[in-house]
Design a protein around this nucleic acid. Structure first.
Lengths: 221, 221
DNA sequence: TGGCGGCCTGAAAGCCACCTGAAGAACGTC
DNA sequence: GACGTTCTTCAGGTGGCTTTCAGGCCGCCA
């Protein structure tokens, strides 16, 4: 886990650095807003500790720009002010948490942990196979990083397939698992939904095994 | 202040209990992970002392599940291991503090006090996600700096959603978490409240996932 | 090569999940 | 007890999703 500290006071940087490194984090530091913003845009940075009292660009501006480019990275703001209105203003501006100077290292650590825990990736189980990623908690799907909108049935069908990559499921099996029907042979719903899924996922993701059923292509991608 | 001790060794339980009760805390005890998890989910419990060397469910699993349901409760972990990697692993897994056996009662008390001081109120009194800020103390929400006041139900619903940004919750799940119904089936209260919340928060904050439930829109802040 | 059966897919109809205004019931306050 | 607020139920309306249907395609086999 890499944490970026954007702070101009040398003393605070070394003091924070020691605490974070002891707790097992990798620490990067930037002395002003420009450097801070540049470094914060790197995907290697998992969390940002940002001082608002920076020389040059105001910290609020750094925060705003960072939010535009990387909306999901947790940011903990350091400030000297403690008015409630400031607090709310900062949270509105995109900070995830807020600390007033002076602060203790243990307090910082607690907030870092809390942010990496909840703000980071609190997602339910994520399934991935054949270049397709299914987030069961957020109910989203993506192919090669591209987000795909799925309806309930489409999602259910893909979930069954992705839970058992490369395994072939017959139409009756899928009808049972996805639709809950125990009966009825005269419906081509499965075919229709496979067709729709293929259109959304792109070609080559779902394979037909003639006379047997369908499977998710499991190959390395 | 009620503290839950999850520990299978009788000796340690009575020894810890005596220390905590002398210091004025109310003490609950559980002998295994299942009981521990059940009791820890009660809102009466203000802090959890968790032994990782439990019979049955591994303590790490208890910790993980507890974090999903009650992200804000402070947890102090007891363990026999002292490797730095273990320590980091536990903190990442959701522990707020960490003690290696054997330990002294005074050390435990110091850590309990520290946790109840910082964790008790500081954390979790303001939540922010998806452009919405929830002030748990004032029971208000604000969107883009504009304050909106919410009724109890509205607040409860929004709190569940904002604690798990981008996660989709089904109507039965929300009925359970916000209304406490175990089951009903024929009610559209959730729909009505989502509708009211949308009116107050403005469009685009709460998304409907047809056939699955609702979620707080993440991303753009 | 022709025929058959399994599979594909566009389009249309029906359904059902969801939305929302309104009204009555429950609650708290004075 | 009267009032205002909040909670819940109800009913009508809407749109997206699901399913069916029909026609065409394609692989397999005689």
């Amino acid at each position: 886990m890499a944490i970026l500290v954007v702070e101009d006071e040398e003393g605070i940087v070394s003091f924070v650095r020691r605490g974070l490194e002891t707790a097992g984090y990798q620490v990067l530091a930037a002395g002003d807003g420009i450097d801070g913003l540049t470094m914060a845009l790197s995907p290697d940075v998992d969390l940002v500790v940002l001082d608002l009292g920076l020389p040059g660009i105001p910290g609020e501006e750094v925060l705003r720009r960072l939010r535009q480019r990387r909306p999901s990275v947790p940011v903990i703001v350091l400030t000297a002010k403690d008015a409630v209105s400031d607090r709310v203003a900062n949270l509105d501006a995109g900070a995830d948490d807020y600390m007033v100077k002076p602060f203790s290292v243990s307090e910082l650590l607690a907030r870092v942990r809390a942010r990496l825990r909840t703000g980071g990736q609190e997602r339910g189980d994520v399934l991935a196979a054949g270049g397709v990623v299914l987030d069961l908690g957020a109910r989203t799907a993506s192919v090669e990083g591209r987000t795909v909108n799925l309806s309930a049935r489409e999602f259910g069908l893909l979930e069954v397939l992705i839970r058992h990559p490369a395994q072939v499921f017959s139409q009756p099996q899928l009808l049972d698992r996805v639709w809950g029907y125990n009966f009825d042979g005269a419906s081509n719903v499965v075919e229709v939904y496979v067709s729709q899924l293929r259109r959304k996922l792109g070609p080559g993701r779902i394979e037909t095994v003639r006379g047997a059923g369908y499977r998710l292509a499991g190959g390395a991608r």
